[in-house]
Design a protein around this nucleic acid. Sequence first.
DNA 1: CATCTATCTGAACGTTGTCAAGATAATCTT
DNA 2: AAGATTATCTTGACAACGTTCAGATAGATG
Lengths: 168, 168
Amino acid sequence: MAHAHEASDRPYHHGDLSRALVQAGRRILENEGPAALSLRAVAREAGVSPAAPYHHFKDKCDLMNAVSTEGWMELGAAVAKARSQAPDGRAAMTNIGVAYVCFARDNPALYRIMYDSACDRETMGDHPKEADSGWRHVREALIDAGADPADERELELATIGAWCAAHG
Amino acid sequence: MAHAHEASDRPYHHGDLSRALVQAGRRILENEGPAALSLRAVAREAGVSPAAPYHHFKDKCDLMNAVSTEGWMELGAAVAKARSQAPDGRAAMTNIGVAYVCFARDNPALYRIMYDSACDRETMGDHPKEADSGWRHVREALIDAGADPADERELELATIGAWCAAHG
DNA sequence: CATCTATCTGAACGTTGTCAAGATAATCTT
DNA sequence: AAGATTATCTTGACAACGTTCAGATAGATG
């Protein structure tokens, strides 16, 4: 039977939770800030029991990483779009920097989570080889945008400029 | 009575707690990592009840800020020392960068706390005007080291270099 | 001395992350 | 088709956390 999982229906089996949980996480992040982002709050917001997420994520950290990853995807998309809207390489680079800082400005809570999970992933040795680290992800996007390895200086300048603007 | 610790005067009831708490915090930070740094753990390590810290610090956040501040002091001292050991301005700047990255490498847990409390202080509006933000603190040290405002590029390059090296 | 005030303890409340057992639904097997 | 299997969700519990509050204790002050 084509199970109609409307919002009004609350069947025992939620359509696909992992997605809903990440969305709930982002909703909480936007409305109540990073401090309110707890496993239980996410489950509450998604309308499931506090133990439900454990069938889709190993840890609280795992959930946060999922939220974080979505953030990096969107940042990557924004960066790619910014790059595509500039003619030459130089202009693309500054455009990318602007896109980066705009993203961090518009989604401060998300950005904080992104940064935190990247930090935790390297401070602890738990997920050793995931290795996207987000930062490098965007960095590669920058390089892909037309920055030579020789352009490292400008590249880092753009990145740090964005970071400084976002963090004070 | 049990813990006759270091040769220190005990001007008050059970000694000088606020100091002991910060030291305990750093001990935990070094031995068990940032995740283990809880208010209760600090109190436990200092040999007092879980409620004792509240007579010296308003919050958990307040305690963390104290630990963090000590970290910034030491970073500042390391930076100052590195500066004093270099002859001209250019050499001082690179020296400072090295000192910075060394500090972050040698005390990763402390550095994490330092960064976190700086972040929280600006993300939330709670302590709005403390405004040292740590980052700028060191930045001013860099500027004080001999960097003109015109040298901003090099300055930021050094800082971001240190940051990148510390964070991946 | 009595008193006051700062400091510490003990117990409690609400919340969090996490796990073990049982209920329920979708899927696979025959 | 029905029965067995697997994936999903709930209930209930546990320890640990941050925080508060009513008392205990000791140094300072009159």
